[in-house]
């Protein structure tokens, strides 16, 4: 039995998930909570956001994000890959910087425009 707090809505239900009984969820106020509890134990995923080095822009860092949530256990590995990226402005919001990051199926993309700075 694993206890967690549901984050689907602000109510914050205290869920109990029974791993041995098909991930049955109790304590949830709605069906979305049951789904959250199940996914959170079977395959927890997170959006990862960070920054990469960029030259020639208005700032020396460019914000980036994964195009979709990646497995929670891979966050630090992904950070190591992100640390290797070196860019030169201009970059466009949504531009793919690393395709299929660590085989997760998610791309690393720029999350803002950064023009070349005079």
């Amino acid at each position: 039995m694993k206890e967690l707090i549901c984050i689907v809505c602000p109510k914050g239900c205290h869920l109990k998930v029974d791993e041995e009984n098909g991930y049955a969820v109790t304590g949830n106020g709605c069906p979305r909570g049951a789904e959250y509890g199940k996914n959170e134990l079977r395959n927890p995923t997170r959006m990862l956001t960070s920054t990469v080095c960029i030259e020639g822009g208005i700032y020396p860092r460019l914000p980036v994000k994964t195009s979709r949530a990646i497995p929670k256990g891979m966050l630090f590995q992904a950070m190591d890959e992100i640390a290797k990226v070196r860019l030169t402005a201009p970059v466009h919001c949504g531009q793919v910087l690393i395709e299929n990051l660590l085989g997760t199926g998610a791309d690393l993309v720029a999350s803002r425009d950064m023009a070349a700075h005079k």
Binding site: M47, P63, K65, C93, S111, R112, D113
Partner: peptide, 10 residues
């Protein structure tokens, strides 16, 4: 949709 801060500003 779920955006980052810079995307929302953008």
């Amino acid at each position: 949709e779920e955006l980052t801060g810079p995307e929302y500003a953008g």
